Amino acid sequence: MKKSFSLMEVIIATALLAVVMVSLYKVQGNSIFLLEKSNESRKSIDFLSLAMDAKIYSKRNKNIFLDKYFNIQNDDIRKEFKGIKIKIEDEIIGHDENRFENITIRRNYYKTFYSFEKGIKKTIYKFEIEL
């Protein structure tokens, strides 16, 4: 007598294989989506980092465009920077003063708020010491 698979066994095996393949396809799609979102978020944070500077408070309440903010010679980078707008707002938080025998120390506190059009925001706090 010849042994072989029945029709029911073949149908069940095919159905199980189809379920596994669909699951793997879905996991791959989710992985690619998460990778793209992660890369986009990292790139946006890098753009914000480029706009951040260590300048002392200057009452900036303006929008900067990265392609105009930097003098870039590379066409590919210039195209990537084109149209990227970052809003910068400076604010004085406060100041205090301490007097010692012959020395007066004055501290000024500043806050700079950077926001990127894709919803990423960073706040940088700075202080300045004057003798």
Rank of each mutant, 00 (worst) to 15 (best):
F5K: 13
E40R: 15
F127E: 04
Y69P: 00
L66D: 00
Y109M: 11
I12V: 15
E91H: 03
K59R: 10
I120C: 00
I77R: 04
M21L: 15
E91M: 04
F113V: 11
I88E: 05
I12M: 11
I11F: 06
L17W: 05
I93P: 03
V19Y: 00
L35C: 03
D67Y: 08
I12H: 01
N108V: 03
Y25T: 15
A54K: 13
I92C: 07
A13T: 15
L48W: 00
Y25N: 14
K82V: 00
K2M: 14
I103K: 12
Y25R: 12
V20F: 13
Y110T: 08
S31G: 06
Q73T: 12
L35P: 00
V20C: 15
R107F: 12
D46Y: 12
I93F: 07
V27A: 14
A51L: 04
D76V: 05
M8V: 15
F81D: 00
V27Y: 10
Y125T: 07
E9N: 13
D46H: 10
M21K: 14
I77A: 09
F33G: 01
F116E: 13
E36D: 12
E9K: 15
A18T: 15
R42K: 05
I72W: 01
F116P: 03
K121M: 01
F127L: 05
Y125A: 02
I129N: 08
A54E: 12
K111A: 10
S49V: 11
Y109N: 14
K55D: 08
S23Q: 05
I124P: 05
F113Q: 10
D96I: 00
K79I: 03
I88T: 06
S4P: 12
K26V: 10
N98F: 10
K37V: 00
L7T: 14
K37R: 13
S44A: 15
I124E: 02
D53W: 02
G83D: 03
V19L: 14
Y109K: 08
S38D: 13
L48S: 11
F33D: 05
E80F: 11
K122L: 02
A15G: 12
V22P: 02
E117S: 09
L35R: 14
V22Y: 10
T123E: 03
K37N: 14
N98D: 12
F100W: 09
I86E: 02
K2P: 11
